[in-house]
Amino acid sequence: MAQYKATPQMKVFSLTSNTDIAEKIAKAANLPLGKVSSRQFSDGEIMINIEESVRGDDIYIIQSTSYPVNDHLWELLIMIDACKRASANSITVVMPYFGYSRQDRVAASREPITAKLVSNMLVKAGVNRVVTLDLHAVQVQGFFNIPVDNLFTIPLFAEHYINKGLTGEDVVVVSPKNSGIKRARSLAEYLDAPIAIIDYAQEDDSQREEGYIIGDVTGKKAILIDDILNTGKTFAEASKIVERGGATEIYAVASHGLFAGGAADILEAAPIQEILLTDSVSNKERVPNNASYITASELLGNAICRIQERRPLSPLFTYHHDED
C-alpha cells in the first residue's frame, strides 16, 4: 500500500481586537478567515472555540494587543493553546500592534521588563513565529527564541507623501523626541528631505521645559514622525514648537494610533493638517477629524504568503515590493 504524506494546509484566524484588518489581510492572502468564536463569562473569563479542524495545519492568528490590552493578550494566549491542543502543525501570530513593547528595559529601580515577559508567555504557549509591525524598539525581537519578523511601515508612508508631492528640500522630517531620530532619518531618505529634532532640557512630562529645534524648519513643510500615538501630547507640543520655528505646513505620521485619554481633542486643537496612521489598531476612542489611514493589510498578507511558501521577506522592507 502506498504511503500517504499529508501536506500542511494554511489557515488564517482572527480574534476580536481588530477584525477589520484581519479581513483585509485574509483577502490579501487570498484565503477565507477560519471559523472561531470567542466569548467572556460573567466573571470575565475568556472562552475560545475553534469551529473547524486545524489538525496538521499551519495556523496564522491575527490579533493586536491593543485596548483592552490584557483581555486581548489573554484571548491570544488561549487561542494559541487551543490550536496547540488541536494538533496544529505550526502557529504564527500576526500582531499588527504589539502591546507592552514600550516596556523593553529597566528605566528606574525595580521596574519590570514586561516586553520580555510577554514574549516568554507567547513562546511558552506554543507560538512558532511572530509577525509584527514597527516594534517600539527593534531589539525586542531578541526577547524571543523564535523567528520574529518586524515589518516596517515607513515605505507605505513614503509612498503616501511622494504621491502628495511632499518631497525634497521644501520638506523637513521632524523627530519630536531624541529616541526617534533613526525613524525620522529613514523617512527622510525616501523623501530626499533633511531632518530636524526637537529636544527638551527637561524630559519629564510633568515638568517639561519648552522644547527647541535642532535643524531648520523655517519656510518648510514639516512632517512629525513617531511610532505610537497615545495621548497626542507629544505631537501637539511638537507641532506648536515647529509652528513657532517657521514651518508653513505641519503633518504628523505614526504607525499605531491608540488615541487614549482625550487625544482627539488635544490633536484637533494642534496646528496639524493631517495625521497619517496605519490600521494596526481598531480604535475604541474617538479619532480626530484630521486623522487619515493607510492599510498595512497587503504588507502583512504578503508576509504570510511568503512565510508559507518559504520565500524571503526581504523584498517587503523596500519601497517597491518586487517579486523575487
Rank of each mutant, 00 (worst) to 15 (best):
R55Y: 10
R55F: 02
C83N: 13
T132C: 15
S292E: 00
T92E: 12
E243A: 15
V93A: 15
Y67E: 15
A137L: 07
N163S: 13
E52A: 09
A260V: 14
S239L: 00
V242G: 02
L166R: 09
A125V: 04
P288Q: 11
D199F: 08
P147T: 09
E169I: 06
I250G: 12
Y319A: 13
R85E: 01
I78N: 05
K221F: 01
T19S: 05
Y190V: 05
H256R: 13
S109K: 14
N230C: 10
R286I: 14
S314N: 07
P68Q: 11
Y60S: 08
Q40H: 12
P288L: 08
V253D: 07
A303K: 02
K220D: 07
T114F: 08
S87P: 03
I266Q: 02
V172I: 12
I214C: 02
G257R: 05
L187W: 06
N178Y: 05
G215P: 06
N49D: 15
A263K: 02
S206D: 14
K240T: 03
F144N: 06
N18H: 07
L33F: 10
E210Q: 14
G262A: 04
G180Y: 01
I266V: 15
N120Q: 13
A291P: 06
Q273H: 09
L316G: 07
R105V: 07
A193T: 10
Q63G: 07
I195Y: 11
V127A: 14
V12T: 12
G215L: 08
P176W: 00
G44N: 09
E249G: 02
L187K: 06
L33N: 01
E210T: 11
G232L: 04
P271Y: 01
L33M: 03
V174I: 08
K24G: 02
L117H: 08
F41D: 10
I213A: 05
F41P: 03
R183D: 00
I154R: 10
S38Q: 12
G165V: 09
T295N: 13
A264W: 08
V217Y: 11
E159L: 06
G246Y: 03
